[in-house]
């Protein structure tokens, strides 16, 4: 379970550019929940994910994961059981390494990065099988550097990499936003499949209301650092895109954009 308790977060405190993103923000995410998060630009979605992962400091409040207070834990230690995929597909992979090398370093997470060889022939075969399952033709492009692949291919590999080890939580920040609609659909389905297979507790920020409604078992809409919609269970199952869109338009008009 992820708990955010009374979070206060300011950017540039004391400066003229001071922005209060969260004022006493609290949120609980139960185990195995798959939460879709929507909301206007600047409503604090990315900031919330950064706070959970420890990428940025908070001014006050507590972050609790599985009952343990991790507020003061560094980002890299929190990542032991968190996988994360960003909007920018380049952030999830190492551009000069090929797909096999990328998958191999990802699979070694939480093991020792010692002086032994990175991967064996049998690992390579295994990775190729894994890639075949994606149906993106990646198994034939294993030895070219990651940077020469398309955004969708990169994102598919990034998603595999983020979920290769035994993680408990998956954090997705508009991870389909940089892709064309068809590739986005493929990545979204892959995401859903992996989350179900691995029983992950997931938070997915998306601007695609259809994804938010179709996938996951809880839907949150954020606005100015608050949740304005929060539905789970059967309420979430019955929610319609129109309903979400209506609320979205309301808050957008309120903001004047």
């Amino acid at each position: 379970m992820i708990e955010l308790v009374n979070i206060n977060k300011y950017y540039n405190p004391g400066l003229i550019t001071e922005t209060c993103v969260f004022d006493n923000f609290s949120l609980k995410i139960k185990d195995k929940q798959f939460v879709s998060v929507v909301g206007s630009n600047g409503s604090g979605k990315t900031t919330m994910l950064n706070i959970i992962c420890g990428s940025i400091p908070i001014d006050s409040g507590k972050i609790i994961i599985d009952g343990q207070d991790i507020t003061n834990k560094k980002e890299f230690t929190r990542m032991k059981n968190i996988g994360r995929v960003y909007q920018n597909p380049a952030l999830g992979t190492s551009p000069h390494l090929n797909i096999i090398e990328n998958l191999a370093i990802a699979e070694n997470k939480n093991k020792s990065f010692n002086l032994s060889k990175l991967y064996s022939k049998s690992d390579e075969e295994r990775y190729k099988e894994l890639l075949k399952g994606l149906n993106l033709g990646l198994e034939d492009r294993c030895d070219i550097p990651m940077k020469s692949l398309s955004g969708g291919q990169k994102q598919a590999v990034a998603l595999l990499m983020a979920t290769m080890t035994d993680i408990d939580f998956l954090i997705l920040d508009e991870h389909t936003a940089a892709l064309d609609p068809k590739t986005a659909d493929i990545i979204m389905e892959l995401t859903d499949r992996i989350i179900k297979q691995k029983n992950l507790t997931s938070i997915m920020v998306t601007h695609n209301l259809r994804y938010a409604v179709e996938y996951g078992n809880r839907l949150i809409m954020m606005h100015e650092g608050k949740t304005v919609i929060d539905k789970e269970g059967s309420e979430k199952e019955n929610i319609k895109v129109d309903e979400v869109l209506k609320k979205f338009t309301e808050i957008s008009i309120e903001c004047g954009n």
Partner: peptide, 9 residues
């Protein structure tokens, strides 16, 4: 890509 190193914990 140092972000990836962080993701590897």
């Amino acid at each position: 890509n140092e972000t990836l190193i962080t993701q590897l914990a």
